[in-house]
Nucleic acid binder design. Sequence first.
RNA 1: GCCCCCGUAGCCCAACCGGCAGAGGCAGGCCCCUUAAAAGGGUCCGAGUGUGGGUUCGAAUCCCACCGGGGGCACCA
Length: 961
Amino acid sequence: MTATSTTTAAGHGDAPGDAPRFRYTAALAGSIEAKWQDFWELHGTFEAPNPVGALAPADGAVPADKLYLLDMFPYPSGKGLHVGHPLGYIGTDVLGRFARMTGRNVLHTIGYDAFGLPAEQYAVRTGTHPRVTTEENIARYRAQLRRLGFGHDQRRSVATTDPKFFRWTQWIFLQLFDAWYDEDAHRARPIAELVAEFQAGTRPTPDGRAWTDLSAAERDAVLTGHRLAYVDEAPVNWCPGLGTVLSNEEITADGKSEIGNFPVFRRNLRQWMMRITAYADRLLDDLDRLDWPDSVKSMQRNWIGRSTGAQVRFPIADADPDAALEVYTTRPDTLFGATYMVVAPEHPLVPAITAAAWPDGTDPRWTGGAATPAEAVAAYRLAASQKSELDRQENKEKTGVFTGASGVNPVNGARVPIFVADYVLMGYGTGAIMAVPAHDVRDHEFATVFGLPIVATVQAPSDHPADEAYTGAGAAINSANDEVSLDGLEVVEAKARITQWLQDKGFGFARKQYKLRDWLFSRQRYWGEPFPIVYDRAGIAHALPDALLPLQLPEVTDYAPQQLDPLDAESEPVPPLARATDWATVELDLGDGLQTYRRELNVMPQWAGSCWYELRYLDPTNDQTFCAPAVEQYWMGKRDGIAGDPGGVDLYVGGVEHAVLHLLYSRFWHKVLFDLGHVTSEEPFRRLFNQGYIQAYAYTDERGVYVPASEVVETSPGVFGFEGKPVGREYGKMGKSLNNVVTPDEMCEQFGADTFRMYEMNMGPLDTSRPWSTRDAVGSQRYLQRLWRSVVSEETGELTVVDDGPDAETAKLLHRTIDGVRADYEGMLYNTAIAKLNVMVNHLTKANVPVSREVAEALVLMTAPLAPHIAEELWQRLGHDASLAHGPFPQADPALLVEDLVELPIQVKGKVRSRIQVAADAAAADIEAAALADEKIVELLAGAAPRKVVVVPGKMVSIVP
RNA sequence: GCCCCCGUAGCCCAACCGGCAGAGGCAGGCCCCUUAAAAGGGUCCGAGUGUGGGUUCGAAUCCCACCGGGGGCACCA
């Protein structure tokens, strides 16, 4: 196939009836589309040059104006694509094609997030290696996507399962393993620099001994406490049903696994963790520098959950002077209103503080009916440990028991009773609180149930109900002791003053608190990246040397983690890699002579590959480094012209479901790479755009079974039937279970890829969800048919354009269209761009005269980003040898955009009463005079002088009589 | 319970910084082409912007309350 051949496949007789031979039918579209897809592939049309390296042009020259577009890459599932999946891909492709036509260097490709559970679970069932399944699925995705005519640089399409890819995932992991966070410098540094500081004595070891006096195991423990990737024995979410541990983010609100909905138990296990909490402040603060949807930013802020407050020490009454409870509060200004305290049931100090007997006069509601505090506390703790997360959530009534002990409020010496209650969580703050029922809703509920005193310390407005906690702003009251008074201060000043006082007296200090936890990074699975880590005899973890990367997965006969009872909380994880006994140990010389080492048997979670793939797209063939610095700088570097620009991908498009996890993890890894000097950008994704979802109707018969949605007909408005029987209609996601899937392949067969692309873009703005309706696609097909007919005869296939210029009206419309379409493409407002193209084509159709070549060419070029195949075909038929992929793109003539005369409405009392014609550039005074001279206006005013006349040039005139 | 987004024609959607409510598509009516049919051609039809207040010369647009839909968080001290 060459650029000069033209399609001859038209008129196969596959058009219905005896439609004209050269009509633009689905069959003709299909042959045109196959031809141009082959052409683009053969000519490498969409290969974007790099400034250096293997993908650089011979002379190394690349356009300064570049655009890096990124789609969230798919997991290649066995189900293939439905019409909802490509929506975002088409959106980025249209923008990329437009940008390429206007001369920019556009990087756009798509790869595969190919490690993951479905292929592994299929392997467990069938014995098929996950690699085989994964490769088949990728091949199917590639074929489906190719049919849609994307302008992807195929050389850059990577898969996370490719050893050439995960070699660098492992390398980045080792960067994290070999780095620590310097709190003073606010950045990560190589671990070797930390060791040097310990050795030189410029940084004290935790227990003050000299570094050289520490044993190897002790040194390792110190370093483990600093590494950004580290092993820790920590409470984790153990899911026996999946045979693996899960991160907090992979668990639903009711305590089940997001995948499979199995029960999850809290267990202490040794696991790999990522110290993402070290970056909490930067991950939060840098959100302000990103061009992201507010909803996503707010979800990330919420997830990081930074709060500022104070940690306060409450001594235990009648006990050892050293005995105290530390509490965290965001409202230190309400300390004078603290009338009791609560510790979480799991708090380690509970046994120590629990009193031997109930104090005299203990309220019977506080004892839980037990004879001693110890019995009451033990019973309550047991009950709490057996409560599932779900129970806790459903039953929010406040419960608890008194410990018999009291704390001493440091601001006024008041004795405050200490309770154990499960509304306080061990995992947040210190696991203990001071309770201020007057100003905290939860404390108020508890105090009401248990009859505890409520002391107001913030003046509530007079209309605030007396029986509710007041959590708003106001002046402090009842808040003074001999040394400090908050009375009269607003909340912010009161917090500052009391915190300073606490600090001066040694009772407490200001403290920040986060909801974000370190990221649990290991999984007991097979189909993931192996850790490039081995353990010596002492159990110390060592990095594999770079020369031994990639570390490949061993072959195993059974991919299942282990058959476990989903309800057995005490079972132990046994990863599948443990079965590869030959692989699990290895002889290595890591500097201490040849030794036997055990390999790490866990694998990385699915997030690992997606944390950095956008960098590998940039330099996919580089085997010296994950991405050459000059290449990263060119595509993702910070822009000089934008204040505070953090750099990153120019546009990242994907679903909002990745708002927290993927996007937070990627940002974390990117910042580490930035700190270590491997990238120049501080953020991976400068601009983020969430595309909407395509939803679909589903229909159920009288048994509640989903019937094929494609065969349902609307028998009368709002009434639907299938095989003559009425069915009920539902609305939701497109999916096999709802029997309402439509695939892009079907759309290509029925209409062609160009019509399909155009229809998806015509349904509405890219960021809104919309209902799928196959039959509505004919509107887009009609547009393309009219465009085709404006250039080519349906009867003969001959060109019909003429060389004469267009008439004045057509020329004006053309340039207005060019102007509007350009602006719409730049703003990704494809639905309105299509509307303008429709106006133009409808105008030509109506005129019913041969179309001027100038107009036809402009229209073809403007349609090209949306419907690239038909545009290339028409461009070629119009006599152009080169592809239009790199332009030109029409330019509007400013002279044709201005109108000489405009019609302005005249409002009287806000209602349009008349219209006048004035010169477009008429002065306001002239317009006012013309308006007041208008017959109908004169009549309405009846001689009275108007009180006010508002003239908005070019828009309207408003008269107030 | 708290936070965010959205309600415009039968349906999907336009309307810039408040300035004539309609660009486009689907469906529908009528006509033409056609032996016939339709996913061909032409033409016509359409709502006063969820409801109620307010600000303004002027509100789909800004403010308040409510109703309806979607999403996020959920005892985080």
